[in-house]
């Protein structure tokens, strides 16, 4: 078993190539300038190309002699729920206010664990919302309204 193909390596390298390439393409839209006065595009272009080149090297190495890493399962439920919770928070904290946004975010997040019981989830969410309010709004004097304008306040 001299040559081993490593799928994670190829995937990682692919991500580097993709992101690096995207930045290079984006940088083409900005002025490149001269060495004396480098434009806004020059540095991202240089670094983007470096990232893409390193990514390519990782892909090639991954095809020939990659690191063998167990990729493991993906907790799809947790991924989906946490993404949803965070996006919800960012989207509604201004409109709904601190308390409702925190409560829903906390409740959603607790559901990421597949072993959670509904009652525990509600209790945890309530406790965290209270603790968060105490620490950030009372303690640190954060200026976010507790209840937002969407609720008619």
């Amino acid at each position: 078993m001299e040559r081993r193909r490593s799928l994670p390596d190829v995937l990682a390298g692919g991500i580097f190539v993709l992101i690096g390439g995207a930045f290079v393409v984006g940088a083409l839209g900005y002025e490149l300038g001269t060495p004396l006065r480098m434009g806004p595009g020059a540095f991202p272009m240089l670094v983007g190309a470096t990232v893409a080149a390193l990514g390519l090297a990782i892909v090639l190495k991954g095809l020939v002699a990659g690191e063998v890493i167990p990729f493991g399962p993906i907790p799809w439920r947790a991924v989906a729920v946490i993404v949803l919770a965070l996006v919800f928070f960012g989207f509604t904290v201004r409109g709904l206010g601190f308390v409702p946004a925190s409560a829903v975010t906390a409740l959603l997040t607790t559901l990421a664990s597949s072993r959670v019981r509904p009652l525990t989830a509600v209790a945890v969410a309530a406790g965290l919302t209270a603790a968060g309010t105490l620490i950030f709004v009372v303690g640190l004097q954060l200026r976010i309204p507790l209840l937002g304008p969407w609720l008619g306040f």
Binding site: I82, F89, S102, T109, T129, G132, F136
Partner: peptide, 16 residues
């Protein structure tokens, strides 16, 4: 089950 929602919530509030 308590710790990770706390991290996520506090991180979201703190960052915001």
């Amino acid at each position: 089950q308590v710790l990770f929602p706390m991290i996520i919530l506090f991180a979201a509030i703190g960052t915001y």
